[in-house]
Amino acid sequence: MTEGVDASSAHLPVMFPQVMEGLRIVQDGTYLDGTFGRGGHARGVLQRLGRGGRLLLMDKDPDAIAVAEREFGTDPRVSIRRGSFADLGTWDLMAGGLDGVLLDLGVSSPQLDVAGRGFSFGKDGPLDMRMDPDSGESAAQWLARAEEAQIADVLWTLGEERMSRRIARAIVGHRDAGKPLSRTTELAELVASVMPRRKPGKGRRDIHPATRTFQAIRIHVNRELADLEAGLDAAHAALRPGGRMAVISFHSLEDRIVKRFIARHAKAPAGNRRLPEHTGFVPTLRSVGGATRAGDAELAANPRSRSAVLRVAEKRAQGSEVQP
């Protein structure tokens, strides 16, 4: 995940043209933006909708919902709900089905920019990291109770941090010494203090030693991967035939889940000559274009797009034939 995103890029929707093309918006369609953020993609959808179109907006973050209410609350085509896209299936407005779903995953630039949210190791603030500050436990609360092995497992599994055990040992040691971590800079400095020094290399793009640790704890605290799996299932169920889902991910764990989800619903399982032939598979999705990344122009203008991957899938009509 990109840390320290330049504030000037916060208003730039990541991969905007590709997302709009992928959703293939029709004027009288119904669309869901499950990660409103600050509304960049939502504005693009609304510009393409006619009077009969509908746009449903969701976000966990109360600050994002406040922006949505302020900017779009009077538009009769727009409905707004605070909550996780994992629960989109419980919204009664989904009953009629959707023509498109957009999920822009991970932490947003405004969340990183506000020190009080606790997402950034580059700004001192309370060690919170919750996208919904009114739900669940903060990063500080979790680190104050989690066992060393559990912390190490989260850092390794969700952050792919090779020094996970060393960092977990340092966190628990700090806590046992009567100094539980409560500030972002405390955690960042502790992680940096136990990491091996890196030799300078020509052309190497160094990242802060705490990058993977912050990413892992944030994903764990917010249950991001579990929410993504539930949200993909709910979006798949809500899409009308011909409707599309567009998902932007920012690290390999997210992208792997999205890629496998689309493949599972688009392709029959691989055969095994030692087992009976699998029959009866009916594809319900069609992958559109494979993995798409930002071009050079966007990379120069919007640093957050550096690690972005867009995948688009289309809901098949029941009984439609598989196309190569």
Rank of each mutant, 00 (worst) to 15 (best):
G4R: 12
V5E: 09
A7H: 12
S9E: 14
A10D: 10
H11N: 09
L12Q: 11
V14D: 02
M15D: 04
F16E: 14
V19F: 02
R24M: 09
I25V: 15
V26C: 11
T30K: 14
F36D: 10
G40L: 10
R43N: 06
L46Q: 03
Q47G: 15
L49A: 06
G50W: 03
G52I: 11
G52S: 06
R54K: 14
R54W: 00
L55V: 09
D59V: 09
K60F: 04
D61I: 07
A64D: 05
A64H: 03
A66E: 15
A66D: 13
A66Y: 02
R70N: 10
E71K: 09
R77F: 06
S79A: 15
S79I: 02
G83N: 07
F85A: 05
T90E: 14
A95Y: 04
G96M: 09
D99N: 15
D99S: 13
V101N: 04
L103P: 07
V107W: 05
Q111E: 14
L112Q: 10
G118H: 07
F119H: 07
G122L: 15
K123T: 06
M131T: 03
M131K: 07
D134V: 02
S138A: 04
A139E: 03
W142K: 04
A146M: 02
A146Y: 00
E147P: 00
Q150T: 13
Q150S: 13
I151E: 01
I151T: 07
I151D: 01
A152W: 00
L158H: 11
L158I: 01
E160I: 06
E161H: 01
E161D: 13
R162V: 01
I167M: 04
A168H: 03
V172G: 07
D176A: 11
G178R: 08
L181T: 09
S182H: 12
R183W: 02
T184D: 04
L187F: 04
E189R: 14
L190A: 07
V194N: 00
V194S: 00
R197D: 07
K199Q: 15
G201C: 07
G203T: 08
G203W: 03
I207W: 01
I207F: 05
H208P: 08
P209L: 11
R212V: 08
T213R: 05
Q215E: 06
R218N: 11
I219R: 07
V221F: 03
N222I: 10
R223K: 13
A226E: 15
D227M: 04
E229P: 05
A234H: 06
A235R: 05
H236K: 05
P241C: 11
G243K: 06
M245A: 13
M245L: 15
M245G: 08
V247Q: 03
V247K: 01
H251E: 10
S252F: 02
E254Q: 08
R256T: 11
I257E: 02
R260C: 03
F261A: 08
P269W: 04
A270G: 04
A270S: 13
N272D: 15
N272G: 00
R274I: 00
L275T: 05
E277A: 14
F281W: 05
V282A: 14
V282Q: 13
T284E: 14
L285I: 08
G289E: 05
G290C: 09
G290W: 07
A291K: 12
A291R: 14
T292K: 15
G295E: 08
D296N: 12
E298G: 05
A301M: 12
P303N: 12
S305N: 10
R306V: 11
V309Y: 02
V312G: 09
E314A: 12
A317N: 03
Q323C: 12
